[in-house]
């Protein structure tokens, strides 16, 4: 069973987290995204974490690992929908998503990817 559905939208993939995730689900998400970025030749990935009630140290580490791994596969990642309380708890825990794109919501995430993927060299600029 796929805990996190991954939609293909043009050159992007959108992973919408639907429920509270276990560690295994996050590992599964990582593997699925890495595979699909290759299969669909995606240039950008949005991970929507709106429903997450807590982003703890493990989830932070996984999100960072996913973003860095996808970067190595040639895709930009943006995390969208971190809720205010969740963000506050992350700050209190000293957790950062350094080197990972973040945006308010899906719309802003798409705008972020549009900007970022156009800046890649060798694509008509």
């Amino acid at each position: 069973m796929l805990q996190v559905p991954i939609l293909k939208q043009g050159g992007y993939l959108i992973a919408s987290i639907q429920s509270v995730l276990s560690d295994a689900d996050l590992l599964q998400l990582r593997d699925n995204l890495a595979e699909r970025v290759g299969r669909f030749r995606s240039r950008g990935v949005i991970i929507d974490v709106t429903v997450l009630d807590v982003i703890d140290s493990f989830a932070t580490r996984m999100l960072r690992a996913i973003a860095h791994m996808l970067k190595l596969r040639g895709a930009e990642t943006v995390i969208v929908g971190i809720q205010p309380d969740v963000a506050f708890a992350m700050v209190q825990l000293g957790l950062t998503l350094e080197g990972v794109g973040t945006a308010l919501d899906l719309e802003e995430g798409l705008a972020y990817l549009n900007t970022r993927t156009k800046q890649l060299p060798g694509h008509g600029k």
Binding site: D85, V86, F88, A89, L93
Partner: peptide, 17 residues
């Protein structure tokens, strides 16, 4: 409050981990 509940949940998550 919602904010405190999230902080408590995060702390539980860390000690459980």
């Amino acid at each position: 409050s919602g904010g405190d509940v999230t902080l408590i949940a995060a702390a539980i998550s860390e000690v459980a981990r």
